[in-house]
């Protein structure tokens, strides 16, 4: 095998791994974007709540030895429930036009949820179950991780499910109506609070899947991941274009793939600097993100 061919395989494999892993970033990005689209607000708790959901799933694994699929399901449900609680605690009763107070309350909730998890686990890394954990598909010179493939498929399916709910059901119609024109929606008899709460639950369900998929892909879960995942989720949201679900998907995969390329060529110390530069490039040359139709409001 020539050097060039070897290098080519290495790079494509690197990009491929990153793309598969990027699916989890995409899910987190979708969650941020969904809530922003609905309320025009930033829910800083989101990534932390997603991981907390994964911890609830892990509890099912630890205490009743539930199979991996049940663990993922419990994660999603728990995170959906947390989403509802966060809505009530941080958004429902704070005046609609007070963005700062809602933002700050959600930061308080992030601290709270994170610290609860830390208390429950002493912050130790814990084994997280995965599907097809040590399966490796060999395709010629390439190896594809079975578990990541599964993660990728789950991400695609749950995104498709979300899009179906948003665009094909009455519920979705209400959600979209509120996100586009909440006064008009109210006049049409849509209960804005109820719709917002449902958006939070939906985003939460998705977050629980993202959290458990991230944990499954690493194989270990630790509260260390919360802040980096929050930052990465926000970057994906902005690169994708605020409020755009397709944008968040593309941006998640893009960040996942490129981050591996930066790592491969420049080493880990500079990797994240290039990801941030990528964001700056978007902000300067394409401030509305990939989708180009971002909702422009503060």
């Amino acid at each position: 095998m020539s050097d060039f061919w070897f290098e080519f395989v290495e790079i494509t494999q690197t990009v491929g791994d990153g793309l598969l892993f990027g699916a989890t970033y995409a899910l987190i990005g979708i969650g941020f974007t969904l809530i922003f689209g609905a309320m025009g607000k930033l829910n800083m708790t989101y990534a932390g709540a997603s991981l907390a959901g994964a911890y609830a799933g892990l509890a099912a694994f630890t205490f009743v030895n539930a199979p991996a699929l049940v663990v993922f399901l419990v994660s999603a449900l728990a995170s959906g429930f947390i989403g509802f609680v966060v809505y009530v605690a941080c958004f429902r009763f704070i005046p609609v036009n007070n963005h700062l107070a809602a933002l700050m309350a959600s930061i308080g909730a992030l601290f709270f949820i994170d610290e609860i998890v830390i208390h429950a686990t002493d912050g130790s890394p814990l084994t997280f179950p995965a599907m097809f954990e040590y399966v490796m598909f060999d395709l010629g010179p390439y190896g594809i991780r079975g578990d990541l493939l599964f993660v990728f498929v789950v991400c695609v399916v749950s995104t498709a499910g979300l899009v179906y709910v948003l665009y094909r059901s009455r519920l979705g119609l209400a959600t979209r109506a509120v996100s586009q024109q909440d006064v008009a929606a109210r006049l049409c008899g849509i209960d804005v609070h109820r719709t917002n709460a449902i958006t939070f639950v939906l985003a939460g369900l998705l977050g629980g899947i993202a959290g458990s998929m991230t944990a499954a892909a690493v194989g270990v879960l630790s509260p260390l991941v919360t802040i980096p995942l929050t930052v990465k989720g926000l970057i994906v949201t902005v690169i994708g274009g605020l409020g755009s679900i397709p944008g968040a998907i593309v941006a998640g995969l893009l960040v996942g793939g490129l981050e591996n390329v930066f790592l491969y060529f420049r080493g880990v110390n500079e990797r994240d600097m290039y990801v941030l530069l990528l964001l700056f490039v978007f902000l300067v040359f394409r401030p509305h993100g990939i989708s180009g139709t971002a909702i422009d409001r503060d």
């Binding site: 690197t14 690493v218 260390l224 996942g256 790592l263 080493g267």
Partner: peptide, 13 residues
């Protein structure tokens, strides 16, 4: 090219 950061989650490279 074989190092990582303390909160990294992807170690394939």
């Amino acid at each position: 090219s074989s190092n990582w950061l303390m909160a990294d989650t992807n170690f394939s490279v």
